[in-house]
Write a protein that binds this DNA or RNA. Structure first.
Length: 329
DNA sequence: AATGCGTGGAC
DNA sequence: TGTCCAAGCAT
């Protein structure tokens, strides 16, 4: 890409700058590494709209990485509940503790990359945005922008092309400019090529088929699965458990119940919920049970929102309470 | 290297 | 409605 195109991209970024709680305006001192890291981990496969209130809440409750490192795990999981991909929260705690023990974030991409939950993208993003290192984080936005710019069908060449585009200085602004362009102009569907500062350089635009790049992912079938959750209620309390650290909803608070299965279940239900995960859909049947089982705790029903239930179980509890009310009426 | 891992908004 | 997809990482 010509230096001219790079400067048009950066100018477009400045002109359309979107203030977000975790970033500083172009030209101002970079944000704290803690803020950059926390936001980047939250933003992994998650929208800005979903992240923004969570980021504010985390920062309010744990203003420094030392504070986060000292937090009980259950408190962090509770604040993460509903945000999804819960391995991120487990890695967040491990990373915070490692960094606190080191006395602060390492400033290089290579050292950041070794920390839990920090992969190729996040290490480059933190290095560029917080430390001004000349790295280009390649996320799906950058992948799409670069693939279209060069009409690439093979995405493996994207990182090299992306690095070749990077102008001298301002690596953090460049990274965010590329991502903002992908999110706002160079969108997956119906890209706004007439408004794009790179249109004159774009091979896919010249071909008239920007949406053909990069090659769309093949669609996968979503199996249907089935499960039971037990509703164990006594004196305004409900029995909750913590799920195993690995696997679905790992480490999260939950209603107790047997493992989910591939065949429909029959039971004396008070409520049902259906929930769609990435790789399967779940029909969950909620069944009243008298006695608590296994390890767990009694959660006051009027403080259920403080339990940190992931969305599946939050909705299951809502459905159960509605079902019990209907039953009593 | 292919797969498992959440959720909600846009269309 | 269903389908796509989001500032990916770990294994």
């Amino acid at each position: 890409m010509s230096a001219n195109a790079a400067s048009r991209l950066l100018q477009h970024y400045v002109d359309n700058f979107r203030r977000l709680p975790w970033r500083s305006p172009p030209g101002s001192p970079p944000p704290e590494p803690y803020r950059v890291w926390l936001s980047e981990v939250m933003l992994q496969q998650t929208t800005v709209a979903a992240v923004t209130p969570r980021f504010e809440r985390f920062l309010e409750r744990w203003p420094t990485i030392e504070a986060l490192a000292a937090a009980p795990e259950a408190d962090v999981m509770q604040e993460w509940a509903g945000l999804g991909y819960y391995a991120r929260a487990r890695n967040l705690i491990a990373c915070a503790r490692a960094v606190a023990a080191m006395g602060g974030f390492p400033a290089s991409e290579a050292e950041l990359r070794k920390l839990p939950g920090i992969g190729a993208y996040t290490s480059a993003a933190v290095a560029a945005i917080a430390f001004g290192e000349a790295e280009v984080p390649v996320d799906t936005n950058v992948e799409r922008v670069v693939a279209r710019l060069h009409a690439l069908t093979d995405k493996s060449a994207v990182p090299a092309f992306a690095k070749a585009m990077m102008p001298e200085g301002r690596p953090g602004d460049f990274a965010q400019a590329m991502m903002d362009l992908g999110a706002s102009i160079c969108r997956p569907r119906a890209p706004l090529c007439t408004q794009c500062p790179l249109a004159a350089d774009c091979r896919a635009f010249a071909l008239g088929t920007p949406e053909a790049f990069p090659t769309p992912k093949p669609k996968t079938i979503r199996p249907q699965r089935y499960g039971i959750a037990w509703w164990i209620e006594r004196d305004g309390l409900v029995w909750l458990v913590r799920r195993p650290a690995k696997g679905m909803l790992g480490g999260m608070a939950a209603l107790p119940g047997p493992d989910w299965q591939d065949e429909p279940v029959t039971a004396n239900a008070i409520a049902w919920v259906t929930h769609v995960f990435t790789h399967f859909a779940l029909d969950l049947t909620i069944v009243p049970v008298a006695e608590p089982c296994g390890e767990g705790w009694w959660q006051p029903i009027d403080r259920l929102s403080e339990a940190g239930l992931p969305t599946l179980y939050r909705r299951a509890a809502e459905a159960a309470l509605a079902g019990m009310t209907a039953l009593a009426a």
